[in-house]
Simulated assay, not measured.
Amino acid sequence: MKTVLITGCSSGYGLETARHFLSQGWNVIATMRSPRAEVLPRSERLRVLALDVTRPESIAAVVEASGPIDVLVNNAGIGLFGAFEATPMATTREVFETNTFGVMAMTQAVLPRFRERRAGVVVNVTSSATLAPMPLVAVYTASKMAIEGFTASLAHELGAFGLSAKLVEPGYGPGTRFAENGGPRMQGLVPEAYAPFAQSVFAMLTQTDAVTTGLDVAEAVWRAATDGSKQLRYPAGPDAVALARAGERGS
């Protein structure tokens, strides 16, 4: 029976991914900053652990407590919406600490164990903003683009040891609590001068019918973790798939 460790499981894509792997008979280590086991089905194959990917001691404790794992899913992330002009550099660094450096730190922590066993898959969840950048999410997009480049390069390193690194690129998901999870860091990031433009962007998002669900992402993560192929990118959701295909045609 295989084991997956998933970060950011309290809601959204991480929660749905944990449910999906459980339904497929895997052992699941679901991590959250503030553990809430009640959001997941009761199962002897489930463990819920506290994890803050910005704290090295928290990462070390979780990796040690997890024992051997077969797949690491780096899903934990924070959102940010606002004009870059109004975004403090401290906020930019906060986003990168979770979305970029947290992913790198988690990956680095498990790689020695994967390499010793010559088996393991790292799945990094980014965003369709890396396929077609959107306005007012420059910092968020940059943090995810960094992981795209990191993973593409890492895949070559890991291949020498029979390991894999994959990317899952979710589309626009209204159910992810993106704005809610952004919290106080988003306050004041849309100055008056940007308000009309921001309203047009919001209107565009609310009018779209092609949205990504948690199950779309969970199924894409499952494919990335289990298909055994050398495929690097897995767009998730109809909008992300369409963007990926458009990019292939334009290349």
Score class of each variant (00 low, 15 high):
Ser128His: 03
Leu131Glu: 03
Phe114Asn: 01
Glu169Cys: 10
Gly149Glu: 09
Gly162Ser: 02
Pro135Glu: 03
Glu148Gly: 00
Gly182Asp: 14
Ser143Lys: 02
Gly173Asp: 06
Phe178Met: 09
Gly149Val: 12
Val123Ala: 10
Met106Gly: 13
Thr126Ala: 04
Ile147Glu: 07
Phe161Gln: 10
Ser164Leu: 15
Met104Gln: 06
Leu167Arg: 07
Glu180Tyr: 09
Met145Trp: 15
Arg117Met: 06
Gly182Trp: 12
Ser127Gly: 09
Phe150Gly: 04
Ser153Lys: 08
Asn99Lys: 07
Gly162Pro: 02
Gly162Tyr: 04
Pro133Phe: 05
Asn124Gln: 14
Ala146Arg: 13
Leu158Pro: 04
Val103Glu: 00
Glu180Met: 12
Phe101Asn: 00
Asn99Pro: 00
Val137Leu: 07
Ala179Tyr: 08
Thr126Gly: 14
Leu167Phe: 09
Ala179Asp: 14
Leu163Trp: 11
Val110Arg: 00
Glu148Arg: 07
Arg118His: 07
Gln108Asn: 09
Gly173Gln: 03
Gly149Ile: 14
Phe150His: 06
Ser153Pro: 05
Thr130Leu: 08
Glu180Arg: 06
Phe101Cys: 01
Gly173Tyr: 00
Met106Ala: 07
Ser153Asn: 15
Ala165Arg: 04
Gly183Ile: 15
Val137Thr: 12
Gly175Phe: 05
His156Trp: 09
Ala155Ile: 00
Thr107Lys: 09
Thr176Phe: 01
Thr151Pro: 02
Ser164Ile: 06
Leu158Gln: 03
Asn99Arg: 01
Leu111Ser: 13
Leu131Trp: 08
Phe101Pro: 01
Met134Arg: 12
Val139Arg: 00
Ala105Val: 11
Glu180Cys: 08
Tyr172Asn: 02
Ser164Cys: 14
Ala132Tyr: 12
Met104Asp: 08
Met104Ile: 09
His156Val: 15
Phe114Lys: 01
Arg177Gly: 10
Leu163Val: 14
Asn124Val: 15
Gly183His: 12
Leu131Gln: 13
Glu180Pro: 00
Ser164Glu: 15
Arg115His: 03
Pro135Ser: 15
Lys166Cys: 12
Leu158Glu: 04
Met134Lys: 09
Ile147Trp: 01
Glu180Asp: 09
Val121His: 08
Ala152Arg: 11
Gly162Leu: 11
Val139Pro: 02
Thr130Pro: 00
Val125Gly: 02
Ile147His: 05
Gly182Glu: 12
Pro174Thr: 11
Ala146Glu: 02
Phe114Thr: 13
Glu180Gly: 08
Ala146Leu: 04
Leu154Ile: 15
Val139Trp: 06
Arg117Cys: 02
Arg113Phe: 04
Pro135Asn: 04
Arg113Met: 10
Phe101Glu: 07
Met145Asp: 03
Glu157Asn: 06
Val168Lys: 03
Ala129Arg: 03
Val121Ile: 10
Met104His: 12
Glu180Phe: 03
Gly162Gln: 05
Val122Leu: 14
Phe150Leu: 10
Glu116Cys: 07
Leu167Glu: 11
Gln108Leu: 06
Ala138Tyr: 03
Gly175His: 07
Phe161His: 11
Val103Met: 09
Asn124Tyr: 13
Ala165Trp: 03
Ala109Ser: 07
Ala142Arg: 11
Ser143Glu: 10
Gly182Lys: 10
Val168Pro: 13
Gly171Asn: 04
Thr141Tyr: 08
Glu148Phe: 13
Arg118Thr: 14
Ser128Gly: 12
Thr141Arg: 05
Tyr140Leu: 15
Glu169Asn: 09
Thr107Val: 13
Gly102Phe: 07
Gly183Asn: 14
Val110Cys: 05
Glu116Gln: 07
Ser164Gly: 14
Val123Asn: 07
